[in-house]
């Protein structure tokens, strides 16, 4: 059998908030065009782990990562890496929708203008594609000039997804993307993710175990900063090897 090719390979990743260590020797390999769910009780380090992939943690003083994270074979923790390009290739969706204070159109056009040399026509096409890709086009095509902050919560989150995919990333990181969204909005986002997996490698942090089991191909269980178990989602939820995993997925703690 041929050796599997991974999109992201994390090796011995340790993470520190000042003196406090939050991640311990994380090893995790993530396959391309799959949805990988990261689960675990609150404070277990799952968001922290995710925030290393686009180095967004560097915004905050005192946070640092040690180890190696390869994306397409290149270590992104290397200080020589082009951060702007990295963040274009690795899009991120946050817990709360964060539309920029601009129109729906400009929200999506913004990263295109930032990263590409494009004519007005090309931008308009791409914005439409991204909004279609985020299953939002039909709902907003008549209000492209209205403020992105005037949309409903679920729509705002899909707008953020459209904004992320407009930059043509390869990877989408989602940090509890539906925890602030109502059930109908959540359902739409989950359906959307199922379609997005054809084009992107998706890593999603979630509190919601049903969500993880519904949508993901692979699941990683984090506990106290360490990765306890990784495997095909079905296996993790039906027949975990580890006792802690079993307790968690069966709702005995967490």
């Amino acid at each position: 059998m041929q050796k599997k090719k991974y999109k992201i390979e994390t090796k011995r990743l340790n993470f520190f908030y000042g003196d406090h260590q939050a991640l311990f020797d994380n090893d995790l390999s993530i396959e391309a065009n799959k949805i990988t769910a990261v689960i675990g009780p609150s404070g277990c380090g799952k968001s922290t782990h995710l925030r290393v992939y686009n180095r967004i943690f560097e915004l905050h003083r005192g946070q640092r990562a040690e180890g190696e994270v390869f994306i397409d074979g290149k270590d992104i923790l290397d200080p020589g890496i082009d951060l702007l390009d990295l963040r274009r290739r690795v899009g991120m969706i946050f817990q709360k929708p964060t539309p920029f204070p601009m129109s729906v159109f400009d929200n999506v056009a913004y990263p295109i203008r930032l990263h590409f040399k494009a004519s007005q026509k090309e931008i308009a096409e791409r914005v439409e594609n991204a909004l279609r890709g985020a299953a939002l086009w039909d709902e907003v095509k008549d209000k492209l000039r209205e403020s992105g902050q005037a949309l409903s919560g679920g729509q705002q989150q899909r707008l953020c997804i459209a904004r992320a995919i407009a930059a043509e990333p390869e990877i989408l990181l989602m940090d509890e993307p539906t925890s602030a969204i109502d059930p109908v909005g959540t359902l739409k986002i989950e359906e959307l993710m199922d379609r997005l997996r054809e084009r992107f490698t998706i890593v999603i942090v979630t509190h919601n175990m049903q969500q993880a089991s519904r949508i993901s191909d692979t699941t990683a269980f984090f506990y106290k900063g360490s990765i306890v178990e990784v495997g095909p989602t079905k296996l993790i939820f039906t027949n975990p090897r580890n006792k802690q995993t079993e307790d968690y997925v069966s709702g005995r703690f967490g």
């Binding site: 082009d82 702007l84 390009d85 930032l114 990263h115 590409f116 494009a118 090309e122």
Partner: peptide
């Protein structure tokens, strides 16, 4: 589509 060089943005 061509990407913009990040050099000027960083400068």
């Amino acid at each position: 589509m061509k990407t913009r060089a990040t050099f000027f943005r960083k400068t």
